[in-house]
Design a protein around this nucleic acid. Structure first.
Length: 524
RNA sequence: GCCCCCGUAGCUCAGCGGAUCAGAGCGAGGGACUUCUAAUCCCUAGGUCGCAGGUUCGAAUCCUGCCGGGGGCGCCA
């Protein structure tokens, strides 16, 4: 667009109230400026044009407010839309990514020094749902878990296991949770193994547990990537060499520094300490260089709020490696505050006092956990009162959505396979007559799925799908209340059309739940 | 000191690439089960969208400042 053209995007919206039309556009408002005519006049002209073009599909247009154009579609248009989308089957809403990309999504990556906490659970629920949404939208997504299986914390972890194996208390800065005792018991000869070997075994055991927990949470990663392997494969040395070649390194007071400040960081960062040890940051850079070499179109890291200070330096390092900053996203997840009857529950792996993801799943069920943890935007702190979550398990929104799905299944069972098949094959535009407002409301909602998926994918916002699923369930409930399906003729409805609508609604709700990793039961 | 997130109905929060955006759920009060699942549905909330400026024909939505809450700022990971 040339200068003088509107800068705001033209939109086709669904007005907040049905009386305002089926669709509305702000186009006249945007065009008025460059055309040099009043918005309402532009709206009049555009409306006339649309009426001509759309013919019988358009019932009428109205110019409203400062210059909106509200469109009222005819019943036949809706019937055709229903028929068309029904043909798309379970893939309705899929695809559309512009352009489709190969993505690597790193999420959870919790230290293998203890069980996953509820905070990790939020990362898991978010990351896994995001991966599903991005994939459904047409991207090729791989999920990855970075295992920090080396470094000072792992040493302390090993020391803690050994102490427990010897019946002693863990060191002051060690891991004091009861699970370490269990771990010590499970590892044979833990009291006299070399620390390095003990660390290896302890981490392996912990990673296994973490994987089992993730399985229970229906969260999957394509790959677990070991930090240690970067050292062993020489990847770390190669990365340092690369940075050296690019002139990004320098030595100062016996330490090796990366010039991250050249790429927007506040100050430079140490890669090799004066005592000769490499920092965590150094391996992380090697890890990202490794990811880069694998040739993805885009990397997304999901990090905890406590890592936000890390974002700038990681991006700087990425650029120092020659990476395109547009192709590397760092998503910061805000915290989960766990409350128990209003009391804050402390979450520290070393302190050993925390609520695990396993416990939460045990408490309220996987479906509720998944739904709860992605219900709120990842950018906002999530307060989760455990007592409340337990008590609410009956009124939990997830049950509401699942119930709608089960109810649809029940109706379709009632209608019988024969009628359902008939509905799927029927030409829905054959019958005429107006749609019931609740039929229309539901249909409109179902037609929004592709747009909702697109927004959720583009903004990395799974919570939108949770909200959408709930809205779809609400609209179905209204439809159920007002419109008899089996035996619709009794109140003047079209049974075939309504069965088709049920099939469609069931698929859409199932799709939304699937994107959240929540089951869609046939009966409850 | 610097950085991040938040401040919207009693509570938990959506909305925040501006206009038709003042919403949902829960809680509370009152109704509805000879009806395809009552794990449901219907009615009842009048909240200065933290405060003050600014940009705009138009701001909860963008900008600035301030107040309040949470978190982070290591040659830890």
């Amino acid at each position: 667009m040339r200068s003088g053209a509107p800068t705001a995007p033209a939109r086709l919206d669904r007005p907040p109230r049905a009386e305002l039309g089926d669709y509305s556009t702000n186009l006249p408002l945007l065009l008025a400026g460059s055309i040099g005519d009043s918005p309402r006049a532009v709206a009049e002209r555009l409306g006339a044009l649309l009426s001509e073009r759309l013919g019988a599909d358009l019932e009428r247009v109205e110019v409203a407010g400062p210059g909106f154009l509200n469109l009222f579609m005819a019943a036949t248009w809706w019937r055709r839309a229903a028929g068309d989308t029904l043909k798309a089957g379970a893939s309705f809403g899929a695809g559309g990514a512009q352009p489709p990309e190969r993505m690597l999504l790193e999420f959870v990556s919790a230290n293998p020094t203890g069980p996953l906490t509820v905070a990790s659970g939020r990362h898991a629920a978010y990351g896994d749902s995001l991966a599903r949404i991005l994939g459904f939208h047409g991207h090729a997504v791989e999920g990855e878990y970075y295992v920090n299986d080396q470094g000072g914390q792992i040493d302390r972890f090993a020391e803690s296991i050994r102490a427990r194996a010897r019946g002693e208390e863990p060191p002051e800065d060690g891991y004091k949770g009861a699970y370490v005792i269990e771990l010590a018991r499970r590892i044979e000869g833990a009291d006299e193994l070399e620390l390095d070997e003990l660390a290896r075994l302890g981490v392996a055991s912990m990673v296994e547990e973490i994987q089992a927990t993730l399985d229970r949470a229906h969260v999957s990663h394509e790959r677990f990537f070991s930090e240690r392997s970067l050292h062993e494969s020489g990847a770390l040395d190669r990365t340092l060499g690369l940075l050296e070649e690019r002139g990004a390194l320098y030595r100062h007071e016996h330490a090796l520094w990366l010039r991250t400040s050249a790429y927007g960081d506040d100050k430079d960062r140490v890669l090799r300490r004066s005592n000769g040890e490499l920092t965590y940051f150094a391996s992380d850079i090697a890890y990202h260089e490794e990811k880069r070499a694998r040739g993805f179109d885009r990397l997304i890291d999901v990090l905890g709020a406590d890592h936000h200070g890390y974002v700038r330096r990681m991006l700087a390092a990425w650029q120092a490696l020659g990476g395109d900053p547009e192709r590397f996203e760092l998503v910061i997840m805000q915290l989960v505050n766990l409350l128990e009857r209003g009391q804050r529950v402390q979450m520290s792996k070393r302190g050993g006092e925390f609520v695990t993801l396993d416990e939460l799943i045990e408490d309220i069920g996987v479906d509720a956990v998944r739904f709860f943890l992605v219900q709120r935007s990842h950018e906002t702190t999530l307060d989760l009162d455990l007592a409340l979550a337990r008590a609410q398990s009956q009124d939990n929104p997830v049950y509401y959505v699942q119930y709608a799905h089960a109810r649809i299944a029940s109706i379709l069972r009632n209608a019988g396979a024969e009628r359902v098949r008939e509905a799927l094959d029927a030409n829905l535009t054959r019958s005429s007559g107006d749609l019931h407002p609740s039929e229309l409301g539901l249909l409109k909602r179902l037609l929004e799925l592709p747009a909702e998926v697109a927004v959720a994918a583009e903004r990395r916002a799974p919570h939108r799908i949770a909200a959408y699923a709930h809205e779809a369930a609400q609209d179905f409930s209204a439809f159920y209340r007002d419109c008899r399906v089996v035996g619709a003729a009794e109140d003047g409805g079209d049974e075939i059309f309504r069965i088709a609508l049920c099939v469609h609604a069931g698929r859409v709700i199932a799709t939304a739940l699937e994107l959240l990793g929540v089951s869609a039961p046939e009966q409850m």
